[in-house]
Nucleic acid binder design. Sequence first.
DNA 1: CTGAAAGCGCTTACAG
DNA 2: CTGAAAGCGCTTACAG
Lengths: 346, 346
Amino acid sequence: MSDRHETRVDAQLPTSFDVAKRAGVSQSTVSLVLNGKAAGRVSPRTQEAVRRVAQELGYQPSMAARTLRLGRTHVAALIIPDVSNPVFAAVLQGAEQAARLHDYTVVQVSTGNDPDWQQRIVHALATRSIDGFILWALDLPESTQLEMLRGNAVIVDGYSPAFPSLLLDIEYGATASLRHLLSLGHRRIAHLAAHIDVETFRVRQRVYERLLSEAGIPLRADYQAMADVNLEESFCAALDLLGRPEPPTAIFCDDDLMAAGVYKAARALHMRVPADLSTVGFCDGLVAQLLDPALTTVAIPMMELGQRAMELLFSSLETELPPFVETIPLGFVVRESTASPREDLA
Amino acid sequence: MSDRHETRVDAQLPTSFDVAKRAGVSQSTVSLVLNGKAAGRVSPRTQEAVRRVAQELGYQPSMAARTLRLGRTHVAALIIPDVSNPVFAAVLQGAEQAARLHDYTVVQVSTGNDPDWQQRIVHALATRSIDGFILWALDLPESTQLEMLRGNAVIVDGYSPAFPSLLLDIEYGATASLRHLLSLGHRRIAHLAAHIDVETFRVRQRVYERLLSEAGIPLRADYQAMADVNLEESFCAALDLLGRPEPPTAIFCDDDLMAAGVYKAARALHMRVPADLSTVGFCDGLVAQLLDPALTTVAIPMMELGQRAMELLFSSLETELPPFVETIPLGFVVRESTASPREDLA
DNA sequence: CTGAAAGCGCTTACAG
DNA sequence: CTGAAAGCGCTTACAG
């Protein structure tokens, strides 16, 4: 005995069987026709009839049934560190654009909210709810339980030897940014670093250390601060930096949102950007556009990256791609948030 | 003959049958136990054994199979006008938080990118890929094809007689905002309106017209501008407004992002906010926090709303809620973007 | 050119 | 207390 009526929707919707009955053909014929596999197997007039009836009934195949049969959900997940950073909206948009061409849906999962994100991925994999993953700005240790991800995931801006990866040229971006500050004559350069232990931020730190040392500037612990990538924390950390006995004349930030925190702190202390304090960011999304004066920053093409990552994921899903690395060049945009340090501070 | 191996993943994952075999019980017993329906039907020791084996094998039930059987996907969609506005990230966060408690996933769909969004909803419904919908800031004409949404959707900040609705008290917010400007002495108040024809924005327009007329201020066409809710368009429109022969002394904006455009235009014209130009926004999200000087704006509790909307959706999914309206109070926050008009302009 | 049948992996009456 | 079986709605060999 059937036990339908679990949802109101189910009760109404036509199945391929309904179409078959009404078109006077078998259910398999309906499936064949509607999947475009009828070429030379079903007469044109039958095909026509099937299509017409399907149209009339507004028939659409059940995703669940198709998924069960085919083993594909047509859902991809974009795993990002933090939804509340608006740059990821651009990534999602890019990813969705690419996904639509393949008839896929994208769900966005934030690891920031959820320390148990690895578990969630494993669960999604185990319940076969998601076909593929884009992992953004996350490191995957080789010996991880995420081993099962092989063939179903691509990495962007993260370290992992086991997956196809889009690697951003953070090295270049950070170098350009710091060279710019140095060439303006800054020597008291602080680093406002993201408080997340992933490679993309470690690179920024390394470049900071190297360029300063190359310029013969000793590293100072009191010029290094950490904060979560959000406005409040960055504001507090920046306030701290600027409150030092000998405050920095420039702050190199790991993200635009952190630069926004610096702006806010400068404002609170009645300092002007860039006259009293130069600031550089990283990302160049909406936040950079909003800041006044306009932010000098490293430009990451987020939307294009989202798109590219999704395309890569599809390739990988089709025929497992070997682990490889494609390096994405970044830009560096000089705007109005940087200037030479004041004479008395230089 | 079986045709497995469609995906690498499928090939490996254990099924309830595997668990049954290894535990030496029938597949139905496994299902009963793992679904907590074994009370008094399966002996404790059998239950224990089943659970242990399931654990060992890392067994998780296939979502697709469960969905097909039960008619529920455990996916809800949040339909919003525009992803690129960062306020919606907060909505999503709230919605996800509530969804997690019910073991649901949320996908976010933007209607802005996609004029065909109604079609997409119908499709999602027809393919039974999504259980329920939260429709945000959208109007649904009664005679819509979305009739089939009945019982599967809730509305937030939108007009529709047929669905459970969370109605924001836009009326109050807009009134408070305009009263504030009027009480500061402004009489040359422009309206920078969102270029989307939905009720939530029509209310703002009506209140604008009414309050001005109540204050005995004639409506001027040259004080009304429209733009999409993004920085570029709002910037251009604001530039236009401020370039009038007799420019406004205050601009009432339909959204914070539009207020950001006004700030940018003011800056471009070397006008100071609020000395030369008062600005009020609507929303009070990240953008409001970023702006300098701090934005006076109507506060909408986006995250709480996302949460509440999701809870409402669950209630509605369980037992169809009759159409009803719950009105959400808004706040109005006076910060630094408003002041009395300059003497020579008042 | 078309149809009957197997099987994807579950849940849940039903029979014992 | 436990198991055999139906059925959710598809796709795709296979047989005719």
